[in-house]
Amino acid sequence: MSGALTTTDAAAGLLAAATSTGEAVQFYALGAVAVAGALGTVALRRAVHSALCLAATMVVLAVFYLANGAYFLGVVQIVVYTGAVMMLFLFVLMLVGVSTADSLKETLKGQRWLAAACALGLGILLVGGIGQAALGTFTGMGAANAQYGGNVPGIAERLFTEYVVAFEVTGALLTIAAVGATLLTHRERIEKATSQREQAEERVRAGRHLPPLPAPGVYARHNAVDRPGLLPDGTPSELTVSDTLQRRGQVREVASKELAEVAATEKRTADYHGRGQEERP
């Protein structure tokens, strides 16, 4: 990445008017990465993988901005998009269930082919439009950047003179968005939260499980709290494992499998020493 950035700086230092061979190589190499990332965003089933592919595409686009002499936008792209926006996406993904893979079953018949046809049509339309346009060559950002002593001062000059009204309006927009997001995700508590004392009194009134619940089993090979404790007759007790683990189906069965393992080990030991099972105390 640093090598790409230095070639970018060198290319854009020459007023970014002509496209050098280095820039062409950079364009084709990173353009392939950008397209692969975009395809991954669309095609991968897990949303986290999609998010990571999109982040890769955005970093590549930041390099392209730098190559085009837009230094400020290149840095803002990395800070705002790959930093803030993608973090926000991943944060919400973790919040709404990271393990849910998108089902690829079609609910509308033939929707995927219709969508592919529409996308192909749009692509042909765009490429045809660009191919027909008389574009000429790059004028280059050199003069525009140098006019106020750099890219950032130049953008600041435009932003705070000609576009100052739009700038103020976007400030208002950001404030409204922040307030709106807070309002949307805020949840009013309808009933009063029960205190510990009220919960204890409720238990006494109901008359079951007055003492604390029994502890889980202590087979701490992985995680002791997911092993149910065993009743005297060897059956696992559901009371010993937390409700959450039971609902997730993450309770490990110790009763049958591991007791069988212990029995097998004991049998192997007994066979090795040449003793019969009946000699065991």
């Binding site: 397209v35 975009a38 965003t41 969508a115 529409c118 996308a119 749009l122």
Partner: peptide, 8 residues
């Protein structure tokens, strides 16, 4: 190309 992939 990227726009088309996004729309798809």
């Amino acid at each position: 190309l990227l726009f088309t992939i996004g729309a798809f």
